[in-house]
Design a protein around this nucleic acid. Structure first.
Length: 355
DNA sequence: ACGAAATGTCTAA
DNA sequence: TAGACCTTTCGTT
């Protein structure tokens, strides 16, 4: 369920607990037993997110220590990096081919860690709709990846009938993974292939990303609301950021990509960067613009009485600008928020102030 | 108990 | 476009 910002947070939490440690890996559920066996006893490197994808390197303790001369990463600092020409053209077969226009992505080694054949093993995880990480140890219990309405943080079965696909343990910490749609081990070229399918990630926001995003959208005739969810155009935004960031910058999700001006798309990219990056530290999505935030019910000079009364004390309805607010008054103009299905996903927008 | 929904993606038809 | 999949939670019988 989480969008990209939550995956970046997970990478942070994982690194705080496991980076540089020799990890005990297991699969209580049994569906990842082979993979867990391959990771068990290896040294964890620095995990990273790219959009909703999570990548974590594991190296044999010996080779790991020998190659380590980097300041913080703990992974071989570029030791096995091939030249760019070699790696992008030579190594990739047809199946791993880089999508046209996405070449720059394959050139970007994740965190400077080698993506060569003989580098570390990479744990690759996608949480899909239901995946979660559950952390325990040192009073640091946390669940990351919980759904919009979930507040209940207790149940991870341990024991028979456990749903824990992968458990990592070290330093007195445990990280339990349940319900991922993808959980696999890749080699360097495999990581390259996975990343090459992804567009720029607003949380990473590397140089040139904004232009790549703008051009990718303007190249297509599909509605921009669909393009923002296309992970090859922007990696990380999900249904909430899609709806609410389009609202924040006033673009109608129904407008064809090639009919949105470059200026407005730049503003959209900048807004994705700002909102998603701000949400990484605690993982909570906050998309209601400060100026439109409903004031406490008692306040006398409420600017937006409509919005306030209509949402009442339904907490979920106050968390987002238009997401899940069908029929309630737009926080900006009071027009009822509209909803329709677009490519199988529910879409929310203000038909009046998004043009 | 049961069904629906949920911040997602893939495959087949 | 429809269905499959992975799991949990919430609202309705």
């Amino acid at each position: 369920m989480p969008e990209g910002q939550a995956i970046h947070r997970i990478a942070r939490l994982i690194n705080e607990r496991f980076e540089g440690a020799d990890v005990v890996a297991s699969s209580p559920q049994g569906r990842f037993s082979d993979g867990a066996r391959r990771l068990d006893g290896l040294t964890a490197g620095r995990a990273e997110a790219w959009g909703k994808h999570f990548f974590m390197p594991f190296a044999d303790g010996g080779s790991f220590a020998r190659a380590d001369n980097g300041p913080s990463s703990g992974m071989p600092a570029g030791s096995a990096l091939q030249s760019e020409e070699e790696s992008s053209s030579g190594r990739l077969n047809a199946k791993n081919a880089i999508a046209p226009g996405a070449e720059h992505l394959a050139e970007t080694p994740l965190g400077g860690t080698s993506l060569g054949d003989d580098g570390p093993l990479w744990l690759h995880i996608h949480l899909g709709l239901y995946g979660r990480w559950h952390f325990t140890g040192e009073g640091s219990d946390a669940i990351v990846g919980a759904g919009v309405r979930s507040g209940n943080h207790n149940a991870v079965n341990v024991g028979a009938g456990s749903t824990v696909r992968l458990r990592l343990a070290a330093n007195g910490f445990t990280a339990d993974l349940t319900g991922p749609s993808r959980c696999e081990i890749l080699d360097g070229p495999g990581v390259r292939a996975a990343v090459s399918k992804l567009g720029p990630d607003p949380v990473r926001n590397e140089p040139g990303d904004r232009e790549r995003f703008v051009e990718a959208v303007r190249r297509r005739r599909s509605p921009v609301g669909q393009l923002v969810l296309d992970q090859s155009i922007a990696a990380g935004p999900g249904n909430i950021y899609r709806a609410d960031c389009l609202f924040r910058v006033g673009i109608s999700p129904l407008r064809p990509g090639n009919k949105v001006s470059a200026e407005r798309l730049k503003a959209l990219w900048d807004d994705l960067v700002e909102t998603m990056q701000a949400d990484v530290p605690d993982g909570v999505i906050r998309t209601v613009p400060e100026s439109l935030r409903p004031e406490p019910a008692k306040a006398s000079g409420a600017k937006n009485p409509d919005a306030e009364s209509a949402d009442g004390d339904d907490p979920e309805a106050q968390r987002f600008a238009v997401y899940h607010r069908t029929g309630r008054p737009c926080l900006r103009c009071g027009t009822p928020v509209a909803e329709k299905e677009m490519a199988g996903r529910r879409l929310f927008w203000c038909p009046s102030c998004q043009r």
